[in-house]
Design a protein around this nucleic acid. Structure first.
Length: 813
DNA sequence: ATCATAACGCTTTTT
DNA sequence: GCGTTATGAT
């Protein structure tokens, strides 16, 4: 063996002693620093630890564990010292030998680590800091969007049209803008719902096409809907630009365009980022992939980390093809699988592996563990949703009384609506709990109002946000005035604020000139105060609450019971401001603060320490773990959702979602299914989820039908696995016994043509026609004696209608 | 300008 | 079943 070979081996071995608590596969991932790397990391396989250690390796030792490069003047003495170090690890000595160990180590800001959520980015940062000290903070650990914002701030002016103070529109802003445009263009928003438009726009941008590209291709399209969508799209992008704004998709799309079109910018970042790492790669869409491949294009040190079995965001454009296609794109890429699970018991993994193995679109991977077999996975079948939540409450109460903590438990469900019953039961049983999801802090109306005020102060040309606040609190600027002013702005090519700042020049606005003038001076006054206060943004905020009259509105007005809560929220927003100021000090600017909050929208992350039960959707549980998990609502049409039944790809996504749910559990996994469930105002009877039929080691517990409360000891009817009903199995053969769709609910059918009815509001009438709709509802056409003929939706109208008694021939109910 | 009634829709979610 | 939105009446 040559001296060089010995040196290379010893160097690597010596370095790896710095990462002693990793298993061989993890070590391999940590040492593979150079070139493209696909890291398939199963659930609970220590993925984040690997990412942290890999970055630490890059910063401390550079490419040394992955390079054949050795010093020219090697001495036997050096090599022997390294070999000794490898065999007898000692931190101090390793430090002293560092010059021999490292090979062009990277500087922190030469490493880019991209995640999806701020939470994940924050966790990455704090763990890097814990391992590397303050320099860990200089690693670019950020979300796709905040990374793009950073790049755009520096370079956006190259593209023309935006300035570096651009505003970021969130989804609600975008929707509001779309509604505005449809009104102006006189397009029916029933034909083109905003959700539909947004998904089109998103797809177009994901394919690297502009609104103009879309309009061009729409020309030859016969569908008038597509043609109108193209018009709206073009106008939408135009107005964004005029308002110096971008939506979430634009942040990435425009960054990609910038990097594509300007080679100097591209080369700058390619040189800067010697190492690029992407987490949750299975959740990236094409555009995001394009972005990272552009950024890492220089040296191709691109490491993507993901788990194809945990891709659950196809519905928002993520494509599993990115992970499945990575190897094709990078022929020479290395693939490392992390399959050892440190989280769950064997029983839990058997269940999870069994469920996911039915998928076709996957790379194939089987988790294994050294952990104990553990308790069985238990299915409990209950009568209805009420019994479901009570059962869980009792199980938790019992477990806590024998020593467990509330925080050991999580309730995972498919849809947010399912949380309701659990909240009720837990309240009744005094179980502290915390519901994640639902309405977010920054989505609250009063918070959006305040943010809109602040935005307008920074950028008065932001028409959309100006419109939001122009009459909030009510200051006598009505719809008509707004209409006229907008029209003027549109005609003259000015911003709305330009127009209302010059009221005297427009005779059309004479009627509300005074009110508009007052409003403009409030805004101008605040703009001046911003200049005076400088970075004392909290003082500016106080002035804003005063001058706008917003606080007064909440206090004096009969803002019912909500006023108090809203005031608290507004003050809470101030504390985020103060927090921002304390972090940035001298450099604090309002524009910067607004950007931060527009990319960071949940305020609830901080309070992890509470000892409470967690309630969340399976989606939000990804990445988390709990000693005991209750997967609830495991019924056909709920989970898997009815929308996915019959669609292979959708069903595979549901199955991955199930896999995610099962692998959250560390020690004990409960699954619950209700025979009957009230959902959307209807009671439905669903079979247990098909996924349950795939779990070979499922213990089924069926409580004897019992009275509602009665906290009794656990009812125990254990059905051996072999007796799990056949219909549970998801083999294609057994799919047939799904009940045929039922006829429309009988409750409504007791109305017939020519029936005489009385309506609470419209009085007496006769039913002229009954037209069933595809949606399952029915349109009633009724001739009223006094109110004329009306068409009413039966679903809604029934609560106001009673049949007149003399009508005979009742249908059987 | 503000309230009341009727319509309607309704996975999952981050940025 | 419930909360949000659009529209029409005061």
């Amino acid at each position: 063996m040559t001296l060089t070979t010995r040196f290379l081996e010893a160097r690597k071995a010596a370095i790896l002693t710095d990462f002693a608590n990793l298993n061989p596969m993890q070590l391999e991932a940590v040492s593979a620093t150079e070139g493209p790397l696909l890291l398939l990391a199963g659930a609970g396989s220590g993925k984040t630890t690997v990412i942290i250690n890999r970055i630490a390796n890059i910063l401390r030792y550079g490419s040394a564990t992955d390079s054949d490069e050795a010093p020219d003047n090697l001495e036997e003495e050096d090599v022997a010292a390294l070999e000794y170090l490898a065999a007898n690890p000692d931190p101090n000595w390793r430090e002293r030998m560092a010059p021999l160990l490292r090979l062009s180590p990277a500087l922190p800001w030469e490493v880019l680590a991209i995640t999806f959520t701020n939470k994940a980015a924050g966790e990455l940062k704090s763990r890097l800091e814990a391992m590397l000290g303050p320099s860990g903070n200089d690693v670019w650990a950020s979300t796709f969007h905040s990374c793009c914002v950073r790049i755009l701030r520096r370079n956006i002016e190259r593209l023309g049209g935006w300035t570096k103070g651009f505003t970021i529109y969130d989804t609600a802003d975008s929707k509001a803008l779309l509604k505005r445009i449809m009104k102006d263009l006189d397009i029916d928003d029933k034909l083109l719902p905003t959700n539909y438009l947004m998904s089109i726009f998103g797809k177009v941008k994901d394919n690297m096409q502009s609104a103009e590209d879309f309009a061009d291709s729409a020309q030859s399209n016969n569908d008038p809907k597509i043609k109108s969508a193209a018009r709206v799209f073009t106008e939408y992008q135009k107005r964004l630009k005029e308002s110096n704004a971008m939506d979430f998709d634009d942040l990435v799309y425009i960054t990609v365009r910038l990097l594509n079109e300007y080679s100097d910018v591209r080369e700058y970042y390619q040189r800067k980022f010697r190492y690029v790492l992407v987490d949750e790669f299975q959740d990236t869409n094409k555009l995001q992939y394009k972005l990272v491949s552009l950024l890492s294009g220089g040296n191709k040190n691109l490491c993507v980390v993901g788990d194809d079995d945990q891709g659950i965001y196809k519905f928002r454009g993520a494509t599993i093809d990115n992970i499945l296609g990575f190897e094709k794109e990078f022929r020479n890429c290395r693939v490392i699988r992390l399959e050892q699970n440190y989280r769950s018991t064997e029983n839990i993994l058997i269940a999870a592996n069994a469920v996911i193995s039915k998928n076709i679109d996957r790379k194939g991977k089987t988790l294994w563990t050294d952990n104990a077999e553990g308790e069985p996975v238990t299915l409990k079948i209950v009568m209805n949703e009420r019994e479901e939540s009570d059962t869980v409450a009792l199980l938790i109460r019992d477990a806590v009384s024998s020593g467990d903590n509330y925080r050991d438990f999580a309730i995972l469900y498919r849809t947010n609506a399912q949380s309701f019953n659990f909240e009720n039961s837990f309240r009744r049983y005094n179980i502290p709990h915390r519901v994640y999801g639902g309405l977010r802090f920054f989505d609250r109306a009063e918070i959006k109002d305040m943010a809109a005020y602040l935005s307008v102060i920074v950028n008065p040309n932001d028409d959309l946000r100006l419109l939001r606040i122009i009459n909030k609190p009510p200051r006598g600027i009505g719809e008509r005035t707004i209409e006229i002013a907008s029209q003027l702005a549109f005609e003259k090519g000015l911003s709305l604020f330009d127009v209302i700042s010059n009221v005297p020049s427009y005779h059309e606005l004479a009627y509300s000139a005074v009110k508009l003038g007052q409003f403009v001076s409030v805004i101008n006054g605040l703009i001046e105060k911003m200049a005076v206060f400088g970075n004392k943004l909290d003082m500016l905020y106080d002035e804003l609450l005063e001058d706008s009259g917003y606080l007064a509105m909440l206090s004096t007005k009969k803002e019912l019971k909500n006023g108090e809560g809203r005031r608290e929220n507004i003050l809470e927003l101030k504390s985020t401001l103060l927090d921002y100021i304390s972090r940035t000090g001298e450099d604090a600017t309002l524009a910067d603060y607004l950007n931060e909050i527009s990319l960071y929208s949940n305020l609830e992350d901080g309070e992890d320490g509470d000892n409470t039960v967690t309630l969340m959707t399976i989606h939000s549980a990804k990445g988390l773990e709990f000693p005991t998990v209750f997967l609830v609502g495991a019924e056909e049409n709920i989970f898997p959702s009815s929308r996915s039944i019959g669609e292979r790809e959708e069903m595979e996504e549901e199955r991955r979602l199930c896999y995610v749910a099962l692998t959250r559990a560390k020690k004990k996994l409960w699954v619950l299914a209700a025979k009957s469930r009230m959902l959307y105002g209807r009671t439905t009877n669903n079979l247990p989820s098909r996924f349950l039929g795939d779990i070979p080691n499922l213990q089924v517990v069926k409580p004897a039908a019992e009275t509602e409360h009665a906290p009794k000891p656990k009812p125990k009817t254990v059905i051996p696995t072999s007796q799990v009903p056949l219909f549970l199995r998801s083999d294609p053969v057994n799919l047939s016994p799904i009940p045929p769709p039922k006829a429309p609910s009988m409750k409504f059918v007791s109305l017939y043509k020519d029936d005489k009815i009385i309506h609470k509001a419209f009085g007496e009438g006769v039913i002229a026609a009954i037209t069933p709709q595809v949606t399952g509802d029915v349109i009633l056409e009724i001739n009223f004696k006094t109110a004329g003929t009306k068409k009413l939706m039966q679903k809604t109208a029934m609560q106001y209608i009673s049949k007149l008694t003399e009508v005979s021939g009742d249908a059987p109910e």
